[in-house]
């Protein structure tokens, strides 16, 4: 083929139907190999993640029991030492302050947080989780995990951080 008949370097050559089919086949092959690698490494792992378990990881947390601002206020009035506030909000809300005495916790760091702050987590205390809003699964996730660790009295603050701010309950600087 002569140079004159060749497409110029700047002219795009549209993919033909057969090229599209080849691309699709290769893409499916790549995905299949990658999925096989994922399933194989999970199966060979020392702690494989359970698959096809409706109650396993990846199950939506059940909505945790709620506590209203007025109820929390009453609890704080009668037994302030019996309550541990847990700050489960996202990082960008930290600048707005935090519930007084709150311990910072996320679902990802829960196990490590429990280990580091164990003395605070007295099983007799009421654990109150404050999340970004009422549509914040992190709060329910933490509540579910804490109950699985044996903490019987865990509640999620109803309405989340906006409701907390409006409740008149104490706000302090970012938790340590």
């Amino acid at each position: 083929m002569s140079d004159a008949a060749s497409p110029p370097a700047s002219t795009p050559k549209p993919a033909t139907a057969s090229e599209w089919k080849a691309d699709l086949a290769r893409a499916l092959g790549i995905v299949a190999v990658a999925c096989a690698l994922g399933l194989a490494t999970n199966a060979l792992s020392s702690k494989p993640m359970p698959l096809l378990d409706p109650k396993g990881p990846g199950a939506l947390p059940e909505p945790g029991p709620r506590i209203l601002g007025i109820e929390l206020m009453e609890e704080l009035r009668t037994n302030p030492q019996g309550i541990l506030m847990i700050d489960a909000r996202s990082d960008e809300l930290l600048a707005e302050g935090a519930p007084v005495g709150a311990v910072r916790m996320t679902p990802e760091t829960l196990v490590e947080d429990l280990r580091q702050k164990k003395p605070l987590f007295d099983a007799a205390r009421l654990l109150v989780i404050v999340c970004d809003s009422d549509k914040c699964p992190r709060g329910d996730d933490i509540a579910m995990q804490l109950m699985q660790f044996g903490y019987a009295t865990v509640k999620v603050f109803d309405g989340g951080w906006p409701a907390y701010k409006d409740s008149g309950l104490g706000i302090q600087g970012p938790p340590k």
Partner: peptide, 28 residues
Amino acid sequence: ARNIANYRLLPAQLNQILAVTLPWVELV
């Protein structure tokens, strides 16, 4: 798997399979 579940789109079983396979698809 929990992060995927939070999107509230898929059942737990699919979330688990995605959590195991999707990182490898991204990686490859």
